[in-house]
C-alpha cells in the first residue's frame, strides 16, 4: 500500500510536467499465457511503478530480427523459449542484461542466462491416461516406463521435433543425467538415442506439432501415454480429462523475457524485468498457469496445493535434466535433420 501511495504521488507530481507518463511495450504469445502475465505482473507493475505497459502479440524471432536490422524496434520486452533466446543471441538481437541491471543471483542455476531474465519454468514429462493405467494398478513413472511396451501397452505420442525426445530416449536407455549431453555430442550417442526412438516408432500414433495435441489425444483415448508439457496436461486435468503426470523424471525448460537491441524504452524495460525477477512477484504467475517459479526463494509464497502441479519444487528439481539451450543452439540443425530422416524412414 505504501508503495502504491508513493507511486500515486509520483504520478501526480510527474503528470503535469509533460505527457512523459512513462510507458513501454511488452510482446508475448497471446492466449492464456499472456492473460496470466497481465494479471500476475503487468497490472501490478503498472500500479506500483506508474509505467504504462502497452501490449502486443506475436514476437516471432524473425520479426525481432527484422525490427532490429531496420532499426524500427517497437517492443521493449519480448518473451521466448530457450531456443529463440539462444538463436537471437547468436545474431545479436538482444541487449545483454548485466547483474547491476537485474540481479539474478537467486535464480535456479539451470535457468540463468546473460541475455534473458528467466520468467517461469515448464516441463516436458510423461502424461498418461488414468483410464488405461488406473491408480489401482501399475502406473508409468519414468522414461524407461514410457518405452516399456510390455508393462504399459498402448499407443504413444511424441513431439515431431527432437528437443526433449532424444534426451528422454537416452535417460530411458540408462544414461545418467549428467552424461546425457556428453553422450549426445558423439555420433554414437546420437545414434543410440535415435535407435531407441526407432524401437518405439510402431507404437507412436501421433507425432505432435502443437502443445494441445497430446492432451487431446490422451483425452480421446487415441493414445495412452504422451510426452508433453506439464502446463497443458494440467489444463486437461482441470477440465476433468482422465490424465495424470509422472513427475519422477522431467526435462524442464525455461521461459525468458528479453530486451531487443534498440528498444525505445530500455529503462522501463529494465524496471519491468527487475519486477518479475523478484521472488515474491515471480511466484505470482503460478496462480494463473501451472508454470513454476524460477527461484527456490519464490516457493515459499506458493500454496501447497498448487505446488503439486509445478515442475520447480526442490524435490522435483533433483530428478530434472534442464534442457541445454546452448547445446541445442550448436547442434539443433544437425539433430533435427537426423531426427526428421529417422521419422521419414
Amino acid at each position: 500500500m505504501k508503495k502504491l501511495i508513493v507511486a500515486a504521488t509520483a504520478m501526480v507530481l510527474l503528470a503535469p510536467g509533460i505527457a512523459s507518463a512513462k510507458e513501454m511495450t511488452f510482446a508475448s504469445w497471446g492466449g492464456a499465457y499472456q492473460d496470466a502475465i497481465r494479471k500476475a505482473w503487468i497490472q501490478p507493475f503498472s500500479k506500483e511503478s506508474g509505467i504504462k505497459v502497452e501490449e502486443d502479440t506475436g514476437p516471432e524471432t524473425a520479426k525481432i530480427k527484422a525490427m532490429v536490422e531496420t532499426k524500427s524496434v517497437t517492443w521493449d520486452v519480448v518473451t521466448a523459449g530457450g531456443g529463440g533466446l539462444m538463436r537471437g543471441v547468436r545474431q545479436g538481437l538482444f541487449e545483454k542484461i548485466t547483474p547491476d541491471m537485474v540481479n539474478t543471483d537467486h535464480v535456479i542455476p539451470g535457468a540463468r542466462n546473460d541475455y534473458g531474465v528467466a520468467s517461469e519454468i515448464f516441463s516436458t514429462l510423461i502424461g498418461f491416461s488414468t483410464k488405461a493405467f488406473p491408480a489401482a494398478g501399475p502406473q508409468p513413472r519414468n522414461f524407461a516406463d514410457f518405452w516399456d511396451i510390455a508393462k504399459f501397452p498402448g499407443k504413444r505420442t511424441l513431439p515431431d521435433k527432437p528437443e526433449t525426445v532424444v534426451e528422454a530416449a537416452l535417460l530411458a536407455d540408462g544414461v545418467p543425467m549428467a552424461e546425457v549431453y556428453k553422450t549426445l555430442s558423439t555420433e554414437a550417442g546420437l545414434k543410440r538415442a535415435l535407435d531407441k526412438i526407432r524401437t518405439l516408432k510402431p507404437q507412436v500414433a501421433v507425432w505432435w506439432a502443437s502443445g494441445a495435441q497430446p492432451v487431446q489425444a490422451l483425452g480421446s483415448g487415441e493414445v495412452v501415454m504422451a510426452l508433453g508439457w506439464n502446463g497443458r496436461f494440467q489444463a486437461g486435468i482441470e477440465s476433468k480429462l482422465p490424465i495424470a503426470m509422472a513427475w519422477e523424471q522431467q526435462i524442464p525448460q525455461v521461459g525468458f523475457f528479453m530486451i531487443p537491441k534498440g528498444a525505445p524504452n530500455k529503462a522501463e524495460a529494465v524496471a519491468f524485468l527487475n519486477y518479475i525477477a523478484k521472488p515474491e512477484n515471480n511466484a505470482r504467475l503460478s496462480e494463473f498457469v501451472a508454470y513454476g517459479p524460477t527461484s527456490e526463494k519464490a516457493l515459499a509464497a506458493i500454496p501447497a496445493a498448487r505446488m503439486e502441479n509445478l515442475p520447480s519444487t526442490s524435490e522435483r528439481l533433483k530428478n530434472a535434466l534442464f534442457l541445454d539451450i546452448e547445446w541445442w543452439a550448436d547442434n539443433g540443425a544437425k539433430v533435427t535433420e537426423a531426427y526428421t530422416a529417422m521419422l521419414k524412414e
Binding site: 492466449g31 492464456a32 502479440t57 517497437t74 494441445a212
Partner: peptide
C-alpha cells in the same frame, strides 16, 4: 500489431500451446 491485428492472427495466438 495489436491495433491492426486480423482475426486469423488473433486465432493463431497461443496456438502452439492451446486451441482456444
Amino acid at each position: 500489431n495489436i491495433r491492426s491485428r486480423t482475426l486469423p492472427k488473433l486465432m493463431y495466438e497461443g496456438v502452439a500451446h492451446e486451441i482456444d
